[in-house]
Deep mutational scan, measured.
Amino acid sequence: DHDVVPEDKFQETLHLKEKEGCPQAFHALLSWLLTQDSTAILDFWRVLFKDYNLERYGRLQPILDSFPKDVDLSQPRKGRKPPAVPKALVPPPRLPTKRKASEEARAAAPAALTPRGTASPGSQLKAKPPKKPESSAEQQRLPLGNGIQTMSASVQRAVAMSSGDVPGARGAVEGILIQQVFESGGSKKCIQVGGEFYTPSKFEDSGSGKNKARSSSGPKPLVRAKGAQGAAPGGGEARLGQQGSVPAPLALPSDPQLHQKNEDECAVCRDGGELICCDGCPRAFHLACLSPPLREIPSGTWRCSSCLQATVQEVQPRAEEPRPQEPPVETPLPPGLRSAGEEVRGPPGEPLAGMDTTLVYKHLPAPPSAAPLPGLDSSALHPLLCVGPEGQQNLAPGARCGVCGDGTDVLRCTHCAAAFHWRCHFPAGTSRPGTGLRCRSCSGDVTPAPVEGVLAPSPARLAPGPAKDDTASHEPALHRDDLESLLSEHTFDGILQWAIQSMARPAAPFPS
């Protein structure tokens, strides 16, 4: 592969990997390779389809078979030569091979799209000592099968071997295949498990690692696999990028399955594409389908809103127990993405979901129960707010008499603000006073009005108090039968009158 990737590009890729991570280095090298001529790309395919690569990765054979028959990708048995050289000459001794072996032994695996480039050397060096003999053996194999790289107009793939297949390693990572398949204008990513390549439709969760975000852009890794992070704060999961590491605690105790298979379609829109997988259930989501939507993949363990709600429900009964003089119970939860139609709101002032922060849900004790107040519409209280300059209440639009249902020339009671006709409430011909108009209920007259088809109010509507207090003497005590009587009149003013009279009014101040 030294004929494909020059030394300066190799060093530039290593520097970019240390600065921005393996995914960015892979993407940059792939983009550079696509700008080369067809001879360089053909050399790339020839390096990929060597015999030892085909033996190690069985899924490469179907890719090789898909090439046109007129494309010669065979390799000479006596060494490598550029395709432009007409004579089959043995190339001179390859010093770059020693360079590659020494550099890969030092860096474990470079971040390139060629056999030198995919593992994360920093994480491997940190986690190597417990498994040094086995990992050293794996390093000797890295130059042979560490990076199976493929690129063409139909298929483009980048393979990364790992030393996680050490025997006896619980939940060992089998390997990473960062794979971009450009077929019919689409893009897919796969993962390699035990020599087999699994596409998103049959993606397997190998051991402790999972394909957290099938994305090839942005600074985030394709698999949430930063070796420096180790395990999740809650004892979460091992990262795919942690090559040759000792077994780590796999999943939280509440995880239903340690080796679950995540779905390959969004649980909201039932469509495929780039998904984020939940650590607590097999569901996966688009970032845009979450509520609120996320802009980037959160670091650490992530769970959907259903799993978060289940966790909150487990903690909430203990938080609601009476604990005198104790601060509110704080339950730190990872930043969760909410699927459509589901929402768990945190306290005000918290950062938005999706940031690399930890939301704190506070379970406050329930407030003391209070008697429910009568629910009145805002339009129902409008007549009470229509007060004239002299303190006389004006008529609201649409006000109707509670007896006849007519809204023409209605009066407004100064005591309960109900609309009424003087002739309907006082049919006996009582003279109307000039000021202080009161309806039949507030004036103490319980004589029913002779209106055909309208039920008369119940005599129990009024329960006047002592006459010594004029204001308190007109406080009506309405009961269920009074409400039914008012409802039978089918008037809004009657219902409003009952609601206003049912509310307690402050006692009249004593004259000074």
Rank of each mutant, 00 (worst) to 15 (best):
H382P: 11
V387W: 14
P324I: 11
E489V: 03
P324Q: 11
S431H: 12
K362F: 07
Q309L: 09
S441Y: 06
H286R: 10
E484Y: 05
L252G: 04
P324L: 13
L411I: 11
L384D: 12
P509H: 06
H490L: 03
R400S: 06
G354Y: 15
Q325D: 07
E390Y: 14
D279S: 07
L252K: 06
V454M: 05
P328S: 13
D279V: 04
R438F: 11
R440G: 08
R432H: 05
R345K: 12
A267D: 13
C442H: 02
A396T: 12
K468H: 04
D482A: 01
P464Y: 11
G244F: 13
H479A: 09
P476L: 07
A371V: 06
W422R: 08
P397L: 12
P464N: 11
R303M: 04
S473Y: 14
G388W: 14
E342P: 13
L478Q: 02
A371Y: 14
C424D: 02
L337G: 11
Q242Y: 14
G405Q: 13
D271A: 08
P457W: 01
E314K: 11
L352C: 14
Q260A: 06
L250N: 04
A319N: 10
C439S: 01
E484G: 06
E350T: 15
G349V: 13
P368M: 06
D264C: 09
V403T: 07
C289A: 12
A248P: 08
R283Y: 14
R438E: 07
T430P: 12
V360R: 02
A248T: 08
P328F: 12
S245L: 10
S306D: 08
E326M: 11
T301P: 08
P322N: 11
Q243M: 10
A417Q: 12
H382W: 06
P298Y: 11
E296F: 15
P367E: 05
S431M: 01
E296Q: 00
P293N: 07
D356H: 13
T491K: 03
S369D: 08
V451A: 06
P322A: 10
P327D: 07
R303W: 06
S299A: 07
Q257I: 04
R270G: 14
G391L: 11
E452C: 13
P298R: 14
T430W: 11
A467G: 07
A460V: 11
P322S: 09
E330V: 12
E263V: 05
C413W: 01
A248S: 10
A472Y: 15
A396C: 07
G402Q: 06
T435Y: 13
C413T: 01
P506V: 04
L462C: 09
G405R: 11
E314G: 12
P457V: 05
R345P: 09
S379E: 06
L381K: 05
D482G: 04
E320D: 09
P372S: 11
L252R: 10
A449S: 14
K362S: 05
G272V: 11
P298T: 09
L275T: 08
L455V: 11
C404T: 02
P448E: 04
K261M: 09
F420C: 03
L483R: 03
V268H: 15
D445W: 05
S473D: 11
L483P: 03
S245C: 06
Q393C: 14
R303G: 14
E330P: 08
G349F: 11
D406L: 05
H474Y: 12
L381P: 07
T301A: 07
C304I: 08
P347T: 15
D255S: 13
D264T: 02
A284M: 07
L381N: 11
V410F: 05
A428K: 12
H286M: 09
P324C: 13
M355H: 13
L252D: 15
L308T: 10
V312P: 11
D255P: 12
P466L: 11
D271W: 13
L308A: 09
P464L: 14
T447L: 10
A456R: 04
P389G: 15
Q257A: 09
E452K: 07
L462V: 11
Q497W: 01
P367F: 06
P298N: 13
A460H: 15
G241Q: 02
P317W: 10
G280S: 09
K468F: 12
V268E: 11
P347S: 10
A507D: 05
D470F: 06
A251P: 08
S339G: 08
A460E: 10
A370V: 13
S502R: 02
C404Q: 03
S502T: 07
P511T: 10
S485H: 10
F285L: 11
C424P: 03
G349T: 08
S512A: 01
S291Q: 04
P464G: 14
E475L: 04
F420G: 03
T311Y: 09
G300A: 08
Q313M: 14
H363K: 15
G272N: 12
L437E: 05
D470C: 08
A507F: 04
Q309E: 09
F510W: 13
A508M: 05
N262I: 08
H363C: 14
A472V: 10
C413E: 00
